[in-house]
Computed example of a mutant assay.
Amino acid sequence: MAIASATVFAPVDDATATAKLASQCDVITFENEFVDLPALAQIAEARFYPTLDSLKPLLDKLDQRQFLQRIAVPTPRFLAIDAKQEAEFKDTVLQFGLPAVLKARRHGYDGQGTFILQDSQSDLPQALPNQWLLEEFIPFECELAVMAARAIEGEVVIYPTVETQQEQQVCRRVYVTAFAPAITAQVEAIARRILAELNYVGVMGIEFFLSRDGKVLVNELAPRTHNSGHYSLDACVTSQFEQQLRAVCGLPLGSPQLTSAGAVMVNLLGYETSSSDYAEKRQRLSEIPQAHLYWYGKTSRPGRKLGHVTVLLSNGQDRTEAETIAGTIEQYGRGGKQTADE
Rank of each mutant, 00 (worst) to 15 (best):
Ala4Glu: 08
Ala6Lys: 14
Phe9Asn: 14
Ala10Val: 05
Thr18Trp: 05
Lys20Met: 14
Ser23Ile: 07
Asn32Tyr: 11
Glu33Gln: 12
Pro38Gln: 08
Ala41Pro: 02
Ala44Phe: 04
Phe48Asn: 01
Pro50Glu: 02
Thr51Cys: 09
Asp60Ala: 07
Leu68Gly: 05
Ala72Ile: 02
Pro76Gln: 02
Gln85Asp: 15
Glu86Asp: 14
Lys90Ile: 01
Leu94Cys: 13
Val101Gly: 07
Lys103Ser: 11
His107Phe: 15
Tyr109His: 06
Gly111Gln: 10
Gln112Met: 12
Leu117Ala: 01
Leu117Cys: 06
Gln121Ile: 01
Leu128Gln: 02
Leu133Val: 08
Leu134Trp: 00
Glu136Thr: 09
Phe137Gly: 02
Phe137Asn: 10
Phe140Cys: 09
Glu141Gly: 00
Cys142Val: 09
Ala149Asn: 03
Ala151Gly: 14
Glu153Ser: 13
Glu155His: 09
Glu155Cys: 03
Val156Ile: 15
Glu167Ile: 09
Gln168Val: 06
Val170Lys: 04
Cys171Arg: 03
Tyr175Pro: 01
Ala180Cys: 08
Ile183Ala: 03
Ile183Gly: 03
Ala185Phe: 09
Ala196His: 07
Glu197Met: 02
Tyr200Gly: 10
Tyr200Asp: 09
Val201Ala: 05
Val201Asp: 01
Gly202Phe: 00
Phe208Leu: 10
Phe209Tyr: 05
Lys215Met: 08
Val218Phe: 08
Val218Trp: 04
Leu221Pro: 00
Ala222Ile: 11
Ser228Leu: 11
Asp234Asn: 15
Cys236Tyr: 04
Cys236Lys: 04
Thr238Leu: 05
Ser239Phe: 01
Glu242Met: 05
Gln243Cys: 11
Gln243Phe: 08
Ala247Tyr: 03
Leu251Asn: 10
Ser255Trp: 11
Ser255Val: 13
Ser260Phe: 09
Ser260Lys: 10
Ala263Gly: 06
Val266Ser: 06
Leu268Lys: 03
Thr273Gln: 12
Ser275Trp: 03
Ser275Val: 11
Asp277Glu: 13
Ala279Lys: 13
Arg282Ser: 07
Arg284Tyr: 11
Leu285Phe: 05
Gln290Pro: 00
Val309Ala: 06
Val309Tyr: 00
Val311Gln: 00
Thr320Met: 05
Glu323Met: 13
Gly327Asn: 13
Ile329Val: 15
Gly333Trp: 00
Gln338Pro: 14
Thr339Lys: 08
